[in-house]
Write a protein that binds this DNA or RNA. Structure first.
Lengths: 328, 328
DNA sequence: CTGAAAGCGCTTACAG
DNA sequence: CTGAAAGCGCTTACAG
């Protein structure tokens, strides 16, 4: 199995050096030799071992992409974009599910380091932790890293973040301007990103003299429906709810309809992320667009520059915008 | 940067062999030596180069997972499961988007081969093509491969397929038993998998003496809504529609509601895949459950055995079932 | 219990 | 234009 360049060399009656030169299209090889070797390469379906090549070149042509859960549609978009873009340049992407704990996420930094990836991307604010930071310092102190939706104050880490605080505050202000005065917020998991959203909600409520009404839901549509119903029973005066995630808004909308509420007449709803759910939902969601596509494409751009020049670093902030549909 | 075992050896005053033995927990090392080396390993945050190690061991500890588009929720589930499972055993997964053409998909087989993956998984019936088959013969003739939702008659390729023909036929029969007599089918892209579904639809229609009414939609909910409306204008007698994909069913349901139809009274709807959309949709979809989870977990099991024993091969067929909710 | 040497599959000066 | 040699970072017989 696995032919080596020595096998090819023997068959062509040349040295391995020559075969290597042909494979890598180096100049200064007699045309007839080149063609003979090329034919054998082709006929034998030879494929170079990237591992061996990487060992001598000190490159792996691999990228590491860490996502806490690859099944999360919101995160996979970025991974997709990066994988597609760099595959064209001959890079393969190790897309790994870094798990739910800080320990496991830090461990994945170590794993990427032992695979000698040339650059890494962290997707999701959950990577914001001291353990991950330390793992980067210990294991990838000079590898270019791009952090999507988070930041570390390290010389090799770039960041691309959405200003979710401001995005959420704007949603509150919009509802206020529409005459809503009892605006609740339903949060999902406790992540750095969600904390920023709540900060924006609280800030805007304070500015406008509104009461902060905060509730937390599990991360399924069904749980959100229950949370929404419960919240409404405690605060029958509610005339608007903002959700930290579109999916939760879908669940809430559904339950409110079941309870005989009219949306947005009785109660206005705003989701977050402008995800596919927001258009599929019935009614279609108004939502805070966190500009996933722009975030991902900024990551991809930075990564590209950082691979060229490993000391390149950049910090980008993207401003969310409000997308108005049928729930406001 | 990049310490090698020679750096560690020098610092510990031992040979590289000894360091290697400590790293690999080989027996027969004096306890004091082992502990001294371990401490240095830890303090210096040493991490072995998997590439170099792989070169000598003739293993890569990498798996290749080919998906046509990683953003497809239906496909990523399998990739997730496999990645998670094998990471525990020290394997990293190259999850690659193999693209839209047979050429590109075949090319990815070559790429996996040059990365010397120890096993590969093809997810999705679209890999069913002569070009991919040839690429496997040429580049991975002995690497264990598991094909999710497709098969190749090759000694190194296992398969796990859903019997979509039968699953779809059953949906038709169910509708018939409910008294529906004008049952249409709306297909999505032309893939081997979708062809099997249509075969099942046609077969059941023939059995029951029903007319086959087949239409094709683009792959967004919006396009499906248009297709549905158009189909209904040509066949006002329709009292049921089966969709090749849940998402299309969501789009169709939405439009039918907008047109003032009552679901399922006027018209019954059945989607395919039992995807998250089917529960989120309003109304919730009845759907042909293609048992994604079982498919994926069967792939993962086979893969595990095949990595142990590279000549292991298995062929599994999984029977879909009908899940009844609010659209029938 | 430990080390020197060879080798995994490549690439790249260096020499001719 | 081409080849012999050294080396990338490891592991593993082999010898002691």
């Amino acid at each position: 199995m696995g032919l080596t360049i020595y096998d090819i060399a023997k068959e062509a009656g040349v040295s391995a050096s020559t075969v290597s030169r042909v494979i890598n299209a180096r100049p200064g090889i007699k045309k007839s030799t080149r063609e003979r070797v090329e034919k054998i390469l082709r006929d034998s379906n030879f494929s170079v071992s990237e591992a061996a090549r990487g060992l001598v070149n000190q490159t792996s042509r691999m990228l590491g992409i860490l996502v806490s859960d690859i099944r999360n549609q919101h995160h996979i978009e970025g991974a997709y974009m990066i994988e597609q873009h760099f595959m064209k340049k001959g890079y393969c992407s190790l897309i790994l599910n870094a798990g739910d704990t800080d320990e496991s996420r830090a461990e994945y930094i170590r794993i990427l380091s032992s695979r000698r990836v040339e650059a890494a991307v962290l997707i999701g604010s959950v990577f914001q932790s001291e353990k991950v930071r330390k793992a980067i310092i210990d294991y990838m102190p000079t590898t270019p890293i791009v952090f999507q939706n988070g930041e570390f104050d390290l010389s090799n880490v770039s960041s691309v973040v959405a200003d979710e605080t401001e995005g959420t505050a704007e949603a509150v202000r919009y509802l206020y301007n529409q005459g809503r005065r009892n605006i609740a917020y339903i949060n999902s998991n406790d992540t750095p990103s969600n904390r920023k959203k709540i900060a924006g909600y609280d800030k805007a409520c304070a500015e406008l003299g509104l009461e902060s009404i905060l509730s937390v839901s599990g991360d399924s549509a069904e749980e959100s429906a229950d949370t929404t119903e419960h919240l409404l029973s405690e605060h029958p005066e509610l005339d608007a709810i903002i959700y930290a995630v579109d999916l939760l808004c879908v669940g809430g909308a559904r339950r409110l309809l079941d309870l005989g509420k009219s949306i947005p007449k009785d109660i206005a709803l705003i989701g977050t992320d402008n995800s596919p759910f927001s258009i599929l939902a019935n009614p279609r969601l108004s939502t805070i667009d966190t500009k996933l596509f722009e975030l991902s494409s900024a990551c991809s751009d930075i990564l590209e520059k950082a691979i060229e020049n490993p000391s390149y670093t950049e910090h980008v902030v993207i401003r969310p915008s409000l997308v108005l549909r049928e729930t406001t």
